[in-house]
Design a protein around this nucleic acid. Sequence first.
DNA 1: GCCCAGGTATAAA
DNA 2: TTTATACATGGG
Length: 276
Amino acid sequence: MDCIKTDIGVKISGVKDLDLAQTLDCGQSFRWVENDSGFYGIAFEREVVMRLEGTDLYIDNCDEKDFEIIWKDYLDLNLDYGKIRKELSELHPILKEAGEYASGIRILRQEPWEALCTFIISQNNNIKRIKGIVARLCESFGDRVGSGYSFPTAERLAELTPDDLAPLRAGFRNKYIIDAARKVAGGEVNLEKCRALPYDEARSELMKIKGVGVKVADCALLFGLHRIEAFPVDVWMKRALEKLFPDMTPSDFGEYAGIAQQYIFHYSRMHPELFN
DNA sequence: GCCCAGGTATAAA
DNA sequence: TTTATACATGGG
């Protein structure tokens, strides 16, 4: 995997186990939009467009240094998903099938606060509307980055009240967003500490926030802090587990449970007939 | 109008 | 400890 400069960005060749649609638009991030030139998005105060041709990844508006310090990690390109998929496939034949079907999924290393906040917004909500709320949140309270806006910091949102978030049309979630922002900005909840804490303690740390239950905590840990042993279970996953893996519990999926969960989630979403 | 959406807080059994 | 209901909003 090497990175060379192009006239508008960089080209990384030899990228394996990556499908941008499966990774950027599978419900782990709500900030990427597909347009004519690829997937457009903003993270870590950078605006880029990504496009994959075979095993060549093009990132526009990016230099070698930004790729090395930001996007390489963001896309989790240091982890060998082919090897992990092989290990997972030995756990259960359906997991092998799901892994092959969704073999381009990677677990993003998103900014922890963004992951936490967007999954607070996700509760009892649908992906289309979540994206709208998140977009309005960034436009209203984020900083300008290129032609878009960054995700607002916890410190910025901590200054606000739930009523200030009315333009987002996020409903009852407004008070949860503000509670999270205040606890994170004030240090009562330490996100970085959750990278290394024993899993149950990391979960408890996040659940100090009103509106954060096990599902939101698991998603924040998986997508924001790269705790890939996290296995978020929602109503959909519960059905998938009962029908497809009746003999397994989330902990049976082991240290890569979060990757297994994403394979299963994507696979079952694309095959709803499995539940009939 | 009715139902549901990558849930959680709260009250009641 | 487990089970029921409200919660804001908008698309199907």
